[in-house]
Write a protein that binds this DNA or RNA. Sequence first.
DNA 1: TTAACTGGAAAA
DNA 2: TTTCCAGTTAAC
Length: 676
Amino acid sequence: MTSAPDHEQLASLKSEVRKRRPQPVIGPASECPVARVLVALPLAHLDRPFDYTVPAGLHAQAQPGCRVKVRFAGRDVAGYLVERREESDHPGRLAPLRTVVSTEPVLVPAVRELARLVADRYAGTVADVLRLAVPPRHARVEAEVPAKPPTSSPPASSLLTEQWAAYDGGSAFVARLAAGSAPRAVWTTLPGDPWPERFAAAAAATAAAGRGSLLCVPDARDVARVDTALTALLGPGQHVVLTADLGPAVRYRSFLAISRGHARIVVGTRAAAFAPVHDLGLVAIWDDGDDLYAEPRAPYPHAREVLLLRAHHEGAACLLGAVARSVEAQSLVELGWAAGVAASRVLVRRRAPQVHVAGEHDHELERDAVHATRMPRRVFEVVRAALADGPVLVHSPRSGYQPALACSACRRGARCERCSGPLGRSAARTAPQCRWCAAVADAWRCPYCRGTTLRAPVVGALRTAEEWGRSFPQTAVVSSGGDHVIDEVDSRPALVIATPGAEPRVAGGYAAAVLLDTWQTLARPGYRAGEESLRRWFNVAGLVRPADKGGRVVVVGEPDAPALQALVRWDAEGFVSRELADRTAARLTPAARLATVTAGPDTLTDVLVALDLPRHVEVLGPVDVSDGDELMARVVVRTTRERGRALSRALQQLQAGRSSRKLTSVRVQVDPSDLG
DNA sequence: TTAACTGGAAAA
DNA sequence: TTTCCAGTTAAC
């Protein structure tokens, strides 16, 4: 340990010293001595490229797209070299590039231009978008020699168009993909249709035209399904999977396979929308209404919008698929931007399950020892009959056991004494606990009426599982939800209790499904409650066998609710078309362009003075949106869709003005997913 | 972090 | 009017 360093150690020590020594002062490169660099700055008013000189020694490495380090205001800052040029239009002296971090061209022109478009659309900065678009470098992965992708013969295009034959316009869509053109479709799938196979077929058709595809899905489970379908159709090695939860090494390996052009097809979650697919021929998104597509980091872009911007900018085809159409997708159809692709009504009716509504006030079962449940008789009967035939899905909108508690005397919500968060119970006979700070409230007393007993007005899936298990004592009960999601169940009779998005699949479909507490989903705050309910219920009902094979869906809820009526008639298009008309009349997204500005009340007052809004922009509010003890206020600004660009520009300038005056940025959200 | 710029006051 | 200096601002 204390002996003299050996030869190897000395050599590595020397190379360390060499690395640390500053660049020798030598002249700029003789060719294109100017490097245009996008610097990773958090300042909105510096959202533009900066020019640096390229020292002769870095000439060969400093290629467009590579990561560099530059000196900016006395600090070393990371950036991307975007262009080499002969001259700069900067009048002053240029500083030299400090280092080329890696010669790997990770920022391709299409993605750089996309980042600008996304930043302008969402009133953000290119630097913020690039943080979402380009994964962190992983040096070891970058140095790996990639395995040669196996060559595979693409499937015959007749096989691919056949895959889409059930849909009017489906085969034609795929044929146009294979011919290298850029059709745009909003596709409504048949219930039970294995959509990952259709996505794979569309990607394969695009590949037949020599172009790449980008397939976005909501979560890792769907990624796995499309991954399987792509492997089955095209063989291994033709595509990559790109999700954030893969871990940095795997994620970067996938990213490099795409950016180097070794893989031409990508399937991934929302961040994959920025994947640098070469010669992009198709962008596709499954169930674009899923709120997992809303990026939670600034500037909060939505994957669907990113893909639409890309399709437009890169001349790619576009496919939006779902069981229930989103209002945005409907808008694309009604604007004539995309064609609706769906099966005939006859076929839909044949494939859909039969849907009944059981009113919540129907004859409830006696609350005896065996049936201690809030279950209308109709539900009990359908479930009992279906359980003879296969698994039954019970859909509960809330996870947990008793996610909310209230005073049983005055019915006011029970709150934590320490932080005033909501109290809930995580299992039977445990003490109530705060859902924010986890404090146990074992001696709770109502601050209003001094009551000491709690009731559970909201029932979670775990509690539902417990109750249903008692009602059907001979039946296996499977719970899927929260951090315990089950992918698939077999087709033996079982009660499968699941929360939204965690529904296990079953080969051949469920014998029946029960949608519980539909009022809860419909009563969610915001104007999207109806659309979101519809999306969830159609996704559940789509897992059930066709009516002629006995498939039944029982919905516990208010029979007159339009979203429920749409489910009974299996008519999502009609619902979203009316919803779009309503939103147009009410000047809401997507007919109008909305944005929110959120800040502390005093800051927001300053903002409203400084904000130079274009004409025809309404300002609604401010309203108090304080969360816990942090005071926050919010305004909604709104204009027509056509004036959306100008609105975004004004909001961008607001942030630029604030950052140049060294004020903190405010939270600006263009097209927030909802207004809660 | 730091070079360039600004404007105000003193000197001529 | 010129020069100097301190505080400000932009940042390649």
